Deep mutational scan, measured.
Amino acid sequence: DRYEFNINGVHFTIDDAEEELIKLIEELLKRGARAEEIEEVIRRWER
Rank of each mutant, 00 (worst) to 15 (best):
D1V: 15
D1R: 15
D1F: 10
D1T: 14
D1K: 15
D1P: 13
D1A: 12
D1G: 15
R2Q: 07
R2K: 10
R2F: 07
R2C: 07
R2M: 08
R2N: 06
R2H: 08
R2L: 06
R2T: 08
R2E: 03
R2D: 03
R2A: 08
Y3L: 04
Y3K: 03
Y3G: 02
Y3E: 01
Y3M: 03
Y3V: 03
Y3W: 12
Y3S: 01
Y3R: 02
Y3Q: 02
E4Y: 03
E4M: 03
E4W: 03
E4Q: 05
E4H: 06
E4D: 06
E4A: 03
F5S: 01
F5P: 01
F5D: 01
F5Y: 05
F5T: 02
F5V: 06
F5L: 06
N6F: 13
N6C: 07
N6Q: 13
I7L: 08
I7T: 04
I7C: 02
I7D: 01
I7W: 04
N8P: 02
N8Q: 09
N8I: 02
N8S: 08
G9W: 01
G9L: 03
G9N: 05
G9R: 00
G9A: 02
G9I: 02
G9Q: 03
V10M: 11
V10H: 15
V10E: 06
V10A: 06
H11R: 08
H11G: 07
H11A: 10
H11D: 07
H11M: 14
H11S: 13
H11P: 07
H11W: 15
H11C: 04
F12K: 01
F12P: 00
F12I: 06
T13C: 12
T13Q: 09
T13M: 11
T13P: 01
T13D: 04
T13E: 07
T13K: 06
T13Y: 14
T13G: 04
T13F: 13
T13R: 08
I14E: 00
I14A: 02
I14C: 02
I14G: 01
I14R: 01
D15I: 15
D15M: 13
D15W: 15
D15C: 07
D15Y: 13
D15Q: 09
D16C: 13
D16H: 14
D16M: 11
D16Q: 13
D16F: 13
D16N: 15
D16W: 14
A17D: 04
A17P: 14
A17T: 07
A17N: 05
E18S: 14
E18P: 15
E18G: 08
E18M: 03
E18L: 04
E18Q: 12
E18I: 03
E19K: 09
E19L: 10
E19A: 09
E19Q: 11
E19N: 07
E19Y: 12
E19G: 10
E19R: 05
E19I: 12
E20L: 08
E20K: 07
E20P: 10
E20Y: 06
E20G: 13
L21V: 04
L21E: 02
L21T: 02
L21S: 00
L21A: 01
L21H: 02
L21R: 00
I22V: 11
I22Y: 04
I22W: 05
I22S: 02
K23C: 04
K23E: 09
K23T: 10
K23P: 02
K23H: 11
K23G: 10
K23F: 13
L24V: 14
L24S: 09
L24Q: 14
L24F: 08
L24H: 11
I25M: 03
I25Q: 00
I25V: 08
I25C: 03
E26S: 10
E26K: 14
E26D: 08
E27P: 05
E27N: 11
E27I: 14
E27A: 14
E27Q: 13
E27D: 11
E27T: 15
E27L: 15
E27K: 15
L28Y: 12
L28M: 13
L28P: 00
L28F: 08
L28D: 01
L28E: 06
L29G: 03
L29D: 02
L29C: 03
L29A: 05
L29E: 02
L29K: 04
K30V: 11
K30A: 11
K30H: 11
K30C: 07
K30Q: 12
K30T: 12
K30F: 15
K30N: 09
R31H: 10
R31T: 10
R31D: 07
R31P: 02
R31L: 12
R31N: 11
G32D: 08
G32Y: 08
G32R: 04
G32S: 09
G32V: 03
G32W: 05
A33R: 05
A33G: 06
A33C: 06
A33M: 05
A33L: 04
A33F: 06
A33I: 05
A33H: 05
A33T: 09
R34L: 11
R34P: 13
R34T: 15
R34E: 14
A35Y: 10
A35K: 11
A35C: 08
A35F: 11
E36C: 06
E36H: 08
E36M: 08
E36T: 09
E36F: 08
E36K: 09
E36L: 06
E37W: 05
E37Q: 09
E37M: 07
E37L: 07
E37A: 06
E37V: 07
E37C: 05
I38Q: 00
I38A: 04
I38W: 01
E39D: 07
E39A: 12
E39N: 07
E39K: 11
E39L: 14
E39I: 15
E40K: 07
E40I: 07
E40A: 08
E40T: 07
E40C: 08
E40P: 02
E40H: 06
E40G: 05
V41E: 11
V41G: 02
V41Y: 09
V41N: 04
V41T: 10
V41Q: 07
V41A: 12
V41S: 06
I42D: 00
I42S: 01
R43G: 05
R43N: 08
R43L: 13
R43K: 09
R43I: 08
R43F: 09
R43Y: 10
R43D: 05
R44C: 15
R44W: 14
R44E: 12
W45A: 02
W45Y: 10
W45N: 02
W45L: 02
W45F: 09
W45V: 01
W45D: 01
W45T: 02
W45K: 01
W45E: 02
E46A: 08
E46C: 07
E46T: 10
E46Q: 09
E46M: 12
E46K: 12
E46W: 06
R47L: 15
R47Y: 13
R47G: 11
R47N: 10
R47S: 12
